[in-house]
């Protein structure tokens, strides 16, 4: 395993968790792109279609779509199919932040580097939403 690397970002929602990264190259609409009971990505997101969100640190460009996003994040949490942290390239919609607070999912955004390029699927990532850091440990 390679040495840990710390990326500085802006912390939005507090909490510290670690898990494997799932990197989506396309903006995510939590209402419509994700099946609640399985956490499977069913929307037209070629980079991650068919993958499951449960237990992952979701790295994505930003959110799009409905103001109902909060309800779907909360439902993923209630069905235990939720991502354990969100790393957004840009500030996500308020509804996403609200859903993450309800579902106790730490969120960071606006990292010092382009996380869509520097974090790979399967990297073990620790997100600290209070400190605003992303620690990447490479793959297990």
């Amino acid at each position: 395993m390679s040495a840990p690397r710390v990326i500085r970002a802006r912390g939005l929602v507090e909490g510290t968790v670690s898990g494997p990264a799932l990197v989506a190259q396309e903006p995510v609409s939590f209402l419509g792109d994700v099946a609640i009971t399985t956490g499977e990505i069913v929307g037209e997101l070629p980079s991650v279609k068919g993958r499951r969100l449960g237990g992952t640190v979701l790295v994505f460009p930003g959110s799009m779509g409905s103001a109902g996003a909060w309800r779907f994040l909360y439902q993923l949490y209630k069905h235990n199919t939720h991502p354990i942290a969100l790393v957004a390239r840009v500030l996500p919609d308020p509804s996403v932040v609200q859903g993450a607070i309800l579902a106790k999912i730490p969120v960071v955004c606006e990292a010092d580097e382009d996380v869509l390029k520097t974090i790979e699927n399967g990297d073990v990532v620790t997100v600290d939403g209070k400190a605003g850091t992303i620690t990447v440990r490479g793959r297990n």
Binding site: A67, G68, A69, W70, R71, D93, P94, Q98, G99
Partner: peptide, 14 residues
């Protein structure tokens, strides 16, 4: 916002 001139975001649960 558009007809009544009140001030609102697209909010969620909050």
């Amino acid at each position: 916002n558009s007809v009544l001139g009140a001030r609102s975001n697209r909010d969620g649960f909050f």
